[in-house]
Every structure is written in C-alpha cells, then in structure tokens.
Simulated scan of single mutants.
Amino acid sequence: MKILVTPRSFGKNNPELFDRLAAAGLEVIRNDTGGILSAGQMREKLAPCHGLILGVDPLDAAVLAAAPQLRAVAKYGVGLDNIDLAACAARGVKVSRTVGANSNAVADYALALMLAVARKVPLIDRRCRERDWGKITSIDLHGKTLGIVGLGAIGKCVARRARGFEMKILAHDVVWDEAFAREAGIERADPDRICREADFISLHVVLTDETRGLINARRLAMMKKTAVLINTARGGLIDEAALLAALREGRIYGAGLDVFEQEPPADPAWYELDNLVMGSHCSSSTAGAVEQMGRMAVDNLLRDLDLR
C-alpha cells in the first residue's frame, strides 16, 4: 500500500516517522521537488496511493479524481482550505488534521512579528550591518490594545502571551468561549471595532468564502495610522493590493506577514517596504511543533487506514 508525503519538514529531524510508516506496511512516496507540489505533480504522485500526508499542496477535485484508491488524508497542520472537502466526502475519503500541534509555535511567531514590526528590528539590524548607528524611533507594545480575530487554539495562546505585556485585548470569534474570555480579561468585539480601536491586529481564522478578504480597503481605512497588522493564518484573509497600497502610503504603521496568497509574492513592491516584516510561511516551523505534527499526522493516517 502506497502513501504520498508532501510536507518537506516531515520526518526531517525525526526519521523514525518513516520507520513507523514502513512497519505498518506502507511504501512512502516523497516530495522530492524541494517545493510545494503543483496540481499536476500531485496528480502524478498521488495516482497509486491509498493515503496522503498533506501540507499546503493542492488537493482539489481534479487531483482527487486521479487517485481512485485514496482512502485517507492526514493534514500536516490545521488549515483545510487547500482541500476540496466536499469531493473528499463524496468519495468517502477521511480527512484529519493535527489540531493543537503547532498552536504555541504560531503564537510565539505572531508575538515575534508584533515586536519586530513595532520596534523596527529588521531595519535596525540592516542599518547596523551597514555601520549606520543612527537611532531609529519605534513604537511600544506594552500596554497597547491587541485585537485578535479568531479566538481558537492559536488565538488563545496569543492572548495568554499578550497578558504578559499588559495589553488590553479585544477579540472576535464566531464560536465564543465566554469562560476563557472572562478568565483572560478579553472583551468581545466585532472586526470593525477591532480595526478602529486596536493598535495591533492579529489574524487567526481559517480561510473560507466568508473570511476571504476579511481585511479589505474599507477596514484598512478604519485603522489607526499607528496600527500594526499581523497575519500568520492564510494570505487570502487580506486584500493584498489594498494592504500594499496602505503600507506604501504610510496609512498604517506596518505589517508582519508570514503568509501570502502567492508564495513567494510576485509583486516586487513587497520587497521594497521598510514597514513590512515578511515570513516564508514558517510560523509553525519549530523543532517541537514539527515533531508533534509529524507524530499526530502518522497517528491519524494509520487510524484512518485501519492500520493501528
């Protein structure tokens, strides 16, 4: 029985994951391209497979149609926007995800981006390497207002960290956890209010038809000139053309983006901004998170293939 493993970090530091798969009688086909697989590459590699450990590579209806034996998909992460769930359900393909495995890692990175943008850390570092020791004035994080859009596992981890900076926290989630909000001192607010009042806005929602373009030109216009926007979730949550214009014109203070609709972004204007800190979709890429995601993905796949 063959399976395809697409995430490049899977088993990189814990090769025993491959031993577990082999011991279960599975033959592993690896992603040997060095990048995210295209739909065409997915169709070719997935064709003989019964199982799939999937990163951010596309799994649409056409890819699924090329894999008639596929029975289980173990998402290496939590976002399911690259998977045609309706097509999987129609085919009886089981889909799992590694909920909670990377929550702390992503929350750490979100805070790192807030600090890096607010304190202009990359700019200061670059100037220092050019032997420019001039002082650069930045803005504070401590005591400011943080708006969290998406108070799920990762959003809650961000809130816990923000309390250490004595931040006022506003949050929005369609499924509201009143007990946690009360314990953490979080005030419920809709996205418009968050955009108007927050000094820092951090996005932690899944990408759906409803959340696509959540941060658009209208909401960017609501933000303070000193606002910082952070996205470690999915690129499609933001109207990137509108954000690029706002950053270039200095209408908000800055942004920290670990995700883009196209990765890497094609427009060269992104790379010229001093008020942007960019990431390569790496917020969950810590040794601990990668190890935990790998273990959970293997557990989920073996369970769904009835091999546990």
Rank of each mutant, 00 (worst) to 15 (best):
G147M: 07
A118W: 09
V121I: 15
M114W: 12
W133C: 02
A105E: 00
T145P: 15
A153S: 10
L123H: 09
A107F: 02
L115R: 03
S138C: 06
L113H: 07
K144T: 13
V117D: 03
L146Q: 07
A118K: 09
C157I: 00
T137F: 07
G143V: 06
V117K: 11
D132W: 03
L141K: 00
R127I: 01
R119S: 09
G134H: 12
R127W: 08
L151V: 08
V149H: 06
A112T: 10
A118F: 11
I154T: 10
R131F: 15
C157L: 05
I148C: 08
D108T: 04
V149G: 13
A105N: 02
I136V: 15
E130V: 09
I139V: 14
D108G: 04
E130Q: 15
L141I: 13
E130T: 08
K135W: 10
K144S: 05
G147K: 05
A116R: 07
H142K: 05
T145V: 14
A105C: 03
C128Y: 12
I124R: 06
A153W: 00
A112M: 15
C157E: 12
K144Y: 12
I139H: 00
A153I: 12
A112R: 00
G150E: 13
L151K: 02
A107Q: 02
C157T: 00
C128F: 10
P122K: 07
A153M: 00
I148H: 12
G155M: 06
T145S: 08
E130I: 07
L141C: 11
C157G: 03
G155Y: 14
E130S: 09
A116K: 10
G134C: 03
G150S: 14
I148S: 11
G155K: 08
G147V: 03
V158N: 00
S138I: 05
T145K: 14
A110T: 14
D132K: 03
A153Y: 02
E130G: 07
R119C: 14
C128V: 15
I136D: 02
G134F: 03
D125R: 12
L151C: 09
V117Q: 04
A153K: 10
V158C: 07
D125Y: 15
A116T: 09
V121F: 08
L111R: 01
I136G: 05
K156C: 13
M114A: 11
V117R: 05
S138K: 01
L115N: 01
R129E: 09
G155A: 15
L146E: 02
H142V: 04
I139L: 04
T137A: 13
I154H: 01
G134P: 01
R126I: 03
L115I: 15
I124P: 00
I154C: 03
Y109M: 14
